[in-house]
Simulated assay, not measured.
Amino acid sequence: MRPLLRVLLVLSATLPAGCATHPDAAAPVVATVIVVRHAEKVDASRDPDLSAAGRARAQALAARLDDATLAAVYATEFKRTGQTVGPTADAHRLAITPYGAGQPASAVAARLRADHPRGTVLVAGHSNTVPELVAALCACAVAPMADTEYDRFSVVTFDARGRARLDVQRYGAPSATP
Rank of each mutant, 00 (worst) to 15 (best):
Y74E: 02
Y74A: 00
Y74K: 03
A75N: 06
A75Q: 07
T76V: 01
T76K: 00
E77T: 15
E77R: 13
F78Q: 09
F78K: 08
K79P: 01
K79V: 05
K79I: 03
R80V: 03
T81F: 01
G82V: 03
G82Q: 06
Q83A: 12
T84K: 01
V85I: 09
V85G: 00
V85D: 01
G86A: 15
G86V: 04
G86I: 02
P87I: 10
P87M: 10
A89R: 03
D90T: 11
A91I: 02
H92V: 06
R93W: 05
R93L: 12
R93K: 11
L94T: 11
A95P: 04
I96H: 00
I96C: 00
T97L: 10
T97I: 07
T97M: 12
P98K: 05
P98T: 04
P98E: 07
Y99C: 03
A101G: 12
A101I: 06
G102E: 11
G102R: 14
G102C: 05
G102Q: 14
Q103A: 13
P104C: 09
A105I: 10
A105K: 09
A107D: 15
A107H: 03
V108R: 00
V108D: 01
V108C: 06
A109E: 04
A109L: 14
A109H: 09
A110K: 13
A110T: 10
R111A: 15
R111V: 05
L112N: 05
R113G: 00
R113C: 01
R113P: 03
R113Y: 05
A114I: 07
A114C: 09
A114D: 12
D115P: 08
D115C: 10
D115Q: 15
H116V: 03
R118H: 09
R118K: 14
G119Q: 14
G119D: 07
T120E: 08
T120Q: 11
V121Y: 02
L122A: 01
L122G: 00
V123R: 04
A124D: 07
G125P: 04
G125T: 08
H126A: 01
H126M: 01
S127D: 13
N128F: 04
N128L: 10
V130D: 03
V130H: 02
V130A: 08
V130T: 13
E132T: 06
E132V: 03
E132M: 06
E132P: 02
L133C: 07
L133V: 01
L133R: 01
L133S: 00
L133H: 03
V134M: 08
V134H: 09
V134D: 08
A135P: 04
A135E: 11
A136L: 12
A136R: 07
A136D: 08
L137F: 07
L137P: 05
L137A: 13
C138Q: 08
C138S: 13
C140Y: 12
A141M: 13
A141S: 12
A143T: 14
A143K: 15
A143P: 02
A143S: 12
P144H: 12
P144S: 13
P144C: 08
P144R: 07
P144K: 10
P144G: 11
A146C: 13
D147Q: 14
D147H: 15
D147A: 15
D147V: 11
D147R: 12
D147F: 09
T148Q: 14
E149A: 12
E149S: 05
E149P: 02
E149D: 15
E149Q: 13
Y150H: 15
D151G: 15
R152P: 02
R152A: 12
F153E: 06
